[in-house]
Computed example of a mutant assay.
Amino acid sequence: MSSEKRKAILQIIIAAILLSTGGIILKFIDMPSMAIAGSRAVFSAAVVWLYLRRPRFTFSKAQISGAICYSSMVILFIVANKLTTAANAIILQFTAPIWVALLGAFILKERPRWYDIIAIIFTGVGMLLFFLDDMGGGSVAGNIVSVISGIALAGVTISLRFQKDGSPVETTLLGHLITIAIGIPFLFGASFNLQNIIGIFLLGTFQLGLAYIFYSLAIRHLTAMETILIMVLEPILNPIWVFLYNGERPGFMSLIGGIIVVGTIVWRGVISSRNYQIEENKSVKHQI
C-alpha cells in the first residue's frame, strides 16, 4: 500500500469520526434549531472558504439547486436531532443512496438496477421498524424530518451529476451561505452563552468544515467501495457518542431497523462499486 493510500484512509477515517460528533454536540447546545444552523454555517463557510481561497461559483441551475438541497439537509438534520434520537436522525439520513436511486429514475432517467430494487425493499422494512417503534412517543416527527433530510442529501448528489465540471466543495459552500441567510433572523434573542458558543464553534469548524475538507482530499485516492466501508463509521459512532454522553438509546425495533438500513446501504454500495468496476474493465477491453 502506497503512502498516499495510507494517508487517504487516515483522512477519511478522521472525516467519519468528526462527522459522527454531530449528534453529541447538538445535544450539548441549548438553542433553537434554526439559530444553531445559521450560526454553525458561519464557521463552516469560513473554514471551507479559507480552504478553497478562490471558490468558483458558476451559479448554474444545478449548482444552485444542489446548494439549496445541501442547506435543507444540514438544517433538517439539526431539527431532527432535536426531535428524535441521534441514532434515528443519522441512520434515516443515511438512506440517501436509496433516494438517489429512486429520484434518478425520474430525474436522470436511470433505470434502477436489480440491487437497487432489493436495497429499496430492505431499507423500507428498516424504516418501517423505526416508525413502529416510535408510534407511542414523540419521535415520529423527528423520523419524518430525518427521512426528508436524506432526500435532500440525495438531491445534492443528483445535482452534482448535472454539473459537468462542478465541485462539491463550492456547492456546499454556497449551501452554507444560503443557510446563513436563512438563519440570521433566528439569531436575534438566541442564548449565546459560553457553552453554546463552544458547541457551535465545534460544529462549524470541526464537525462539518474540517470533516468535509478531509473527505474531499481522501476520495481522490480511494475507491468508491473503500469510501463507503469507512464512512459507515459515522452512523455507527454517532449514537455511541450520544449514549456515552447522556444515556440516550434507540428502542429495540429502531435498533434492528438501523442494523437493516446500514447493512443494506453498505451491501448496495459494495455491489454497485463492483458492477461499476466490471463495466469499466469491459469498456477498456472493448476500446483496445
Rank of each mutant, 00 (worst) to 15 (best):
S149D: 04
Q195D: 08
L208T: 14
L229T: 05
K109Y: 12
T172Q: 13
N246I: 08
Q287V: 07
L187Q: 06
M34E: 11
F28D: 01
R111I: 07
A41R: 10
K5E: 13
L160W: 03
K282R: 15
V284T: 12
I256Y: 08
G126P: 06
L233K: 01
A37E: 11
T58I: 10
W267R: 04
P32F: 06
V74G: 04
A211L: 01
M1S: 12
H176N: 15
E248T: 04
R40C: 03
S71W: 11
N275S: 13
T85S: 14
V262D: 09
A80Q: 00
P168I: 10
W241L: 05
R53G: 08
L255W: 10
S3T: 15
M253K: 02
F162Q: 09
N281L: 15
A119P: 10
G124E: 05
I118D: 10
G150M: 14
P235M: 04
S149V: 01
N275M: 14
I75F: 08
V125K: 07
L19W: 10
P239E: 01
G38C: 06
I90M: 09
I78H: 07
G258Y: 01
Y212N: 13
G199K: 00
K61V: 07
N88C: 02
G247M: 06
F206C: 08
I230R: 04
G269V: 07
V284M: 02
K7C: 09
I120F: 13
F252V: 12
S3W: 10
I228G: 03
I91C: 00
N275A: 06
L203I: 12
P97N: 02
D133Q: 14
F77P: 01
K285S: 15
F77S: 09
P168S: 15
W49K: 09
G189E: 09
A190G: 03
L18K: 01
R274K: 14
R268T: 12
L108V: 15
T84N: 07
Y212T: 13
Q287Y: 14
M135G: 07
H176S: 13
A141N: 03
T172F: 13
T227L: 03
V270K: 08
N143I: 02
I260L: 03
N281T: 13
F214Q: 08
I121Y: 06
L102E: 02
I213E: 05
T172M: 15
F28H: 13
I25M: 03
S44F: 08
I182M: 11
L18F: 13
L83T: 03
N193L: 04
I117D: 07
V284L: 11
G22Y: 05
G38N: 14
T123P: 02
L255T: 15
G247N: 11
M34P: 02
L177E: 10
S139P: 00
R113D: 14
V270L: 06
I90P: 05
L210C: 11
A67I: 12
G263K: 12
L52R: 14
L255P: 00
Y245V: 00
L229M: 08
S254Q: 14
